[in-house]
Design a protein around this nucleic acid. Structure first.
Lengths: 113, 113
DNA sequence: TGCAAATATACTAATATTTGCATATGAATA
DNA sequence: TATTCATATGCAAATATTAGTATATTTGCA
């Protein structure tokens, strides 16, 4: 469960605006489906589908209370990932001075097309 | 450049095993295309396509040295994201005790289908 | 100048993802 | 028990992603 394939599955699953929003909300606490309807501008079946995808990826889970389904965060990688995504990066990484293979070339390099 | 759409684009772009591998290698330092061929089991055109996708997403860049293209990391979010992806998570997040709306229900909840 | 090396691009076919819509299910309530 | 509320499921259409194959571009060198 900690190999690269599993991690790729996780990020593939969260790489969607609606699903990021859902997870963002779940960080704050448990929510049922109708709660999501108030701030997501997508249909109820679509919300259900996204929740289902998140659950199948092991990122969230739910418990049943009457006719409500109360969803909550399950996978601990999510808060960490969302933290990084919220971070504000202003500067690019420093570029290398030259090609480490030939010890030649310059940066910023010539870009011909 | 720091809105949710941009972030989603970034994670969408890295959500592929080959691209994760490429970025993992670039963390160690500059690499040209043929370097990637030695450890990625995919064709050269395919590597080029992945590099192109990563570059269009602003994650990497390159400079030209003769007939080599020396690629390097550009976007500072990448090392942070890869760190999280490498982290080892053993336990699930603690589940909620009950439904915060109705103050009823239990976790782990009844799962009927 | 002509060839080979390094890399990119174009196009296509296969496959996956996303959404919308219609409908189904299960629990609460009248 | 019939109805309604909350939510899920199934399926089809639209769209996006991926990989493969063929070919093009650029550069260095003989």
């Amino acid at each position: 469960m900690n190999n690269i394939t599993a991690k790729v599955e996780i990020i593939k699953t969260i790489a969607h605006p609606a699903r990021i929003s859902i997870l963002d909300e779940l960080i704050k606490g448990v929510k049922c489906v109708s709660d999501f309807q108030s701030f997501l501008e997508i249909s109820q079946p679509n919300i259900s589908q996204h929740l289902s995808a998140l659950r199948h990826a092991g990122l969230i889970d739910f418990f049943v209370d009457g006719r409500l389904r109360c969803y909550f965060l399950k996978n601990p990688i999510i808060p960490d990932l969302l933290d990084v995504l919220k971070k504000d990066y202003t500067k690019d990484l420093p570029g290398p001075e030259c090609c480490p293979v030939t010890k030649r070339g310059t940066y910023p390099g010539v870009r011909r097309r």
